[in-house]
């Protein structure tokens, strides 16, 4: 049902039954535990990514969703050649990422909200000079590129300041500039808006959309902020416990996992609770505002009944916030869904 949106061209990212196991040694607390740990280690295998398969077409913007520890970052690291897969295969732009061919690395970038590549004590421009040399950008082209990206990010005035003097938002924008100076056609972002205020988040989102349109770049991003995903991605990949549980359109996700609507009514004057409960099951009720959660197929009926029996001043029908839906999903309860939750694409 929720086939991923078809985009033109062969997939630029092909992931087939990708798996990563980490071997970790557990240590019991205390001196005895330490000694035992030193003499004889108990090893345990953590399955960070379990047989994940998907592919991504050129120019797509795909959101990678999942709670902490679901395997999002590990997957990104395998896609960028930083981490060696235990099993399965990855092709990105026709390359095996872990071989780290120069051609491949010139084609991609990875932006991490928690790590920074800019030299801390020097101005951003110094780091950019190094990146320009690393990526063999013709000297005549460097300045125009910096100016263009700085304009899109509106940070032109702070590039000459030492990085340590920048605000978090400015630093993240400068990181984006440094990461995109070589105009990669595949952009991986791991929590790019982490810790940013709302304005900076919006600016980063707008920038990514503009970059995608201008360069035609493929973008795969993870984020904790649902707003990043809803603003940018038509398609989402949902991972839970290392496994892919959903791959498809964001809109279908809502339909699949939350087949109900919110009906909110503002009343002309207060009404008895029983009268409101007679319309449908009440979700919240405060003062003159009441909200019902209504199954989709009962929606028109409920709205009609409300208008008929209540002094309605204002009426709104909306989808429940996607955070709620995802949150419910990750609680391990895939309830509220008529369809089976697991929906990996055909291999």
């Amino acid at each position: 049902m929720s086939q991923r949106p078809t985009a033109a061209g062969d997939p630029v990212i092909v992931v087939d039954r990708l798996t990563k196991h980490y071997r970790v040694a557990d240590k019991d607390p205390g001196v005895l535990g330490t000694l035992r740990h030193f003499v004889r280690r108990k090893h345990r295998v953590i399955e960070a990514v379990k047989s994940v398969s998907f592919d991504i077409a050129p120019g797509e913007i795909v959101g990678f969703l999942g709670p902490n520890g679901a395997g999002k970052t590990t997957t990104l690291k395998m896609l960028t050649g930083l981490v060696h897969p235990t099993a399965g295969s990855v092709r990105v732009a026709g390359h095996d990422p872990f071989r780290r061919a120069a051609r491949f690395l010139e084609d991609i970038t990875l932006v991490m909200g928690q790590k920074q590549q800019l030299i801390w004590d020097l101005p951003t421009l110094d780091s950019l000079r190094i990146n320009a040399a690393v990526y063999r950008i013709p000297p005549a082209e460097v300045r125009p590129r910096i100016d263009r990206l700085a304009e899109m990010l509106s940070i032109g005035d702070v590039l000459a300041q030492p990085v340590r003097k920048l605000s978090l938002g400015q630093r993240m924008k400068a990181e984006l500039l440094a990461a995109l100076l070589h105009r990669p056609s595949i952009v991986f972002l791991d929590e790019p808006t982490l810790g940013l205020d709302v304005n900076a988040q919006t600016a980063v989102r707008a920038f990514l959309r503009e970059y995608n349109a201008e360069v035609g770049a493929t973008i795969l991003l993870t984020s904790h902020y649902m707003a990043d995903i809803t603003a940018l991605c038509e398609r989402v990949l949902l991972v839970h416990d290392g496994a892919l549980v959903y791959d498809g359109a964001l809109a279908d996700l809502v339909e699949r996992f939350a087949p109900y609507r919110e009906v909110e009514v503002e009343l002309e004057h207060p009404v008895e609770r029983e009268v409101l409960a007679a319309v449908a099951e009440i979700d919240t009720f405060e003062g003159r505002v009441v909200r019902w959660l209504v199954p989709r197929d009962a929606l028109t009926q409920v709205v009609a009944r409300a208008l008929e029996t209540l002094p309605v001043h204002d009426l709104r029908v909306s989808d429940p916030p996607i955070e709620q839906i995802i949150g419910r999903l990750f609680d391990g309860r895939f309830e509220g869904s008529a369809a089976p939750p697991t929906h990996p694409p055909a291999a």
Partner: peptide, 15 residues
Amino acid sequence: RMGTLDFVLLKPVDA
């Protein structure tokens, strides 16, 4: 320790 070896490995230069 900080995981910034990532950035070195991502550069198209011999690590």
